[in-house]
Design a protein around this nucleic acid. Sequence first.
RNA 1: GCCGCGGUAGCUCAGUGGUAGAGCGCGUCAUUGGUAAUGACGAGGUCGGGAGUUCGAUUCUCCCUCGUGGCACCA
Length: 669
Amino acid sequence: MKNVDRQIKDITITLPDGAQRTYPSGTSALDVATDISPGLAKVVIAAKIDGELSDLSLPIINDAALELVKKDADEALELIRHDCAHVMAQAVQKLFPGTQVTIGPNIDNGFFYDFARDEPFSSEDIEAIEKQMRTIIQRGDAFVREVWDRDKAIAYFKDKGEAYKAEIIEDLPEGEDIKVYRQGQGDDGWLDLCRGPHMPTTRHVGDGFKLLKVAGAYWRGDSNNAMLTRIYGTAWRDKKELKAYLHQLEEAEKRDHRKLGAEMDLFHFQPEAQGSVFWHPQGFTIYNQMEGYIRRRLNDAGYDEIKTPQLIDNKLWEKSGHWGKYRENMFVVPDEVPQGSDDGTHDGPILSDKAFEKLMALKPMNCPAHVQVFNQGIKSYRDLPIRLAEFGCCHRNEAHGALHGLMRLRQFTQDDAHIFCTEDQITDEAVGFCELLQNVYSDLGFDDVAVALSLRPETRVGDDALWDKAEEGLRKALVKTGLEFREDPGEGAFYGPKIDYQIRDAIGRTWQCGTLQLDFNLPERLDASYIGEDGNKHRPVMLHRAILGSLERFIGVMIENYSGKLPLWLTPTQVVVATITDKADAYATALQEKLVAAGVRADLDIRNEKINYKVREHSHAKVPYIYVVGAREAEEGTVAIRELGGKDQLVKNVDDAIAGLVDDAKAPF
RNA sequence: GCCGCGGUAGCUCAGUGGUAGAGCGCGUCAUUGGUAAUGACGAGGUCGGGAGUUCGAUUCUCCCUCGUGGCACCA
């Protein structure tokens, strides 16, 4: 056994099954594993000492609980990915001397490493790096942990030209161990500043990894800093797991709402209106169904729907504070008739110098306009709460790089509403909203909702008593609705605490859609008031709230969640009546008309094509039902129903079929 | 906005320093067929825009533009 010379005392090692073993102090986890069985020693990759993941080789000084971590453990992926990042960095520096390393953390499903290099990495470079990584892994160099003196470490990295690493060490708190992990010897040697732990050797990384993409990233995530080159990779226990993950990526790509949107003829984008949607008839059917559904829900929950102007004088935006805080995201329009020209060429300046004297802005939010509606007339405490809803079309001047299909637009429609209430009504209103939101998400097929309560930030408006009341009001509401939630101190907006709702989709991605935000600021700025029981003026509390967030974006999320196979009530074309021969044309036409009359979105396909062709085409278009009719059905007054993806047909008489379909196609509310 | 990659027919993509090709789709004709590809023929492209190099540019270079993957942003 190693380290016997350092033996001072015996320590007790407790294994997960409760068994206790005695070893000399300084024994490593690997020693323990070897002692238990040589076979075990071969498959362990790390240790958990008193619950903390550590290197196998680390000497254990005192009594400890020890868990030996094998490749099938959850923690194994962390280790594999992190080691893989080290191997990648070594490969990069071997192939591209002069490249500086910066940071390389694990992320979901993989890792990245940021490098500072003048030239970007080409796809051939990436292949070469991967090849080099395999060489390093096959060599099976041991990861060796060393603790360095701080100044020595800084000097070492500075001397090597690793300015970023030196900077990282300089920023580490005084007194923290500067740990370095070395892998390989001489020419094939490499080391990196690292918190660890690592697996025993590079060979343990295995072959379940792949480099995925190269991207730019700012040093320390700050756009004022230098742009580094980031290489993303994914790593798994073995090739099989890797393959499964890559397959999953492909599947996710197939669901991309932009791709499905084009295939299903739902909408398009074009350069003349970047970031804004051209809805096609099929897509707008979905949009209208969604809007109608939310409208019914809001109406039922006691909201009043309004519509407010698109273009509003910037004076209002100044008053609301948006001009100061949000201007760079606003589209500003001069309130001036563009200049004509006498000769009809329109060559002259479009606007006069005075154009800037009066500016209008396309609204980026609806709230100031809603306060204007509230402010009309005198409100009594008896009128509260007042809930004003609007399918508000907003324009935001988003950075070009941020635009992404329906998910991030410059013009979008919020299912927005503002509740004006008293401080005492906060909890009831929040409860009401939470319930409404849960019902809506559940109707739309999202049952996994994560809730976060964001509390007061450093800089804020409103006194602490108000914040106390507001935060407590929201907390109480969440407890009352029985929703599980997390609290995020300091994450609230400057104008009030908020609740954010995240839904999880069919492939595990999360989307932040719903929100409930208290606002102490805007009623003050825009002088909203009501007359209280005491006959005096009071400020109402304002709640901003949305369930879908953006109608467009939510439809994008729905398309991806359902892979385009939306619930029947949202599907643009619910059924196609398709004929086998033209002998059934008249019967099919009558059937389709009957369906339409019953409120079903039904198309007719009496083209001169074979039934195979029609079935294939409509299946591709994801039409949920195909009603096939031929001479037989025409004679018997029936229809052969083919469900999307199904192989069998169900023959029903026409009236039963229609009644059943109408029932299935009912909106959930 | 920043870094990288890309833009060739309606769509997906191949290709070349001598003005272009496939599959699907589209049109016409034939086919009257029973549940995911019937056959034949045909139309369709200033190869994203501009400038440069060249006898000649879709191809090479530069600029612009749009898209895209990240980063930053998302009061």
